[in-house]
Computed example of a mutant assay.
Amino acid sequence: MAGLIDKAKNFVVDKVANVEKPEASLDDLDLKDMSCDAITYSGKVSVKNPYSTSIPICQISYKFKCAGREITSGTVPDPGSLKGNETTKLEVPMKVPHSVLMSLVKDIGADWDIDYELELGLTVDLPLIGNFTIPLSKKGQIKLPTLSDLFTK
């Protein structure tokens, strides 16, 4: 009897492990807004839903690192849902105070840009499986705004 239960358990585990899951990619990171106290960056995420029904997104968590240091982190709660059999575009806003960017001045150098790494966790609620987090990361360079950029907006 125990052998039959183990076989049934393994069968279910194998089927759940092979269930098709949404796929996501981190497409871009752009400067969204500048104010006197902060710069807001926007991460662009594309998520492909393989199911015919929509899937709710529980949250998007992020860590934004520059020059090896975390400069901001947070979550975007309840950003909507993924449409069935489509690719949904999501935006993840990240507000970075100027004081934090100014602490990176030594790392910026003469070219006025900094290396960044953005880590995202897209948590969706899959039927039968429950909450499933899709990890994403992207590395690149951010061109920082100059003083004239701040005063012309």
Rank of each mutant, 00 (worst) to 15 (best):
M1H: 15
A2V: 06
A2H: 15
A2N: 15
L4K: 14
D6E: 12
K9Y: 08
N18P: 03
V19M: 14
K21I: 04
K21D: 06
L26M: 08
L29Q: 00
L29S: 02
L31M: 12
L31D: 01
L31Q: 07
K32M: 07
M34T: 10
S35M: 09
D37W: 06
V47G: 01
P50G: 06
Y51T: 07
T53E: 15
S54I: 04
I57W: 00
Y62Q: 05
K63N: 09
F64L: 09
F64V: 04
A67F: 00
G68Y: 05
G68W: 04
T72D: 09
T72A: 13
S73M: 06
S73G: 10
S73E: 13
G74V: 07
T75P: 02
V76K: 00
V76L: 14
P77H: 02
S81G: 13
S81C: 14
S81P: 01
E86D: 07
T87E: 11
E91V: 14
M94G: 05
P97Y: 07
S99G: 12
S99P: 05
V100Y: 02
S103T: 09
S103L: 08
D111S: 15
I114R: 02
Y116H: 04
E117L: 11
L120S: 01
L120K: 01
L122D: 06
T123V: 11
T123F: 00
L126P: 08
L126M: 08
L128C: 13
L136C: 03
L136W: 03
S137W: 06
K138T: 02
P145F: 15
T152W: 09
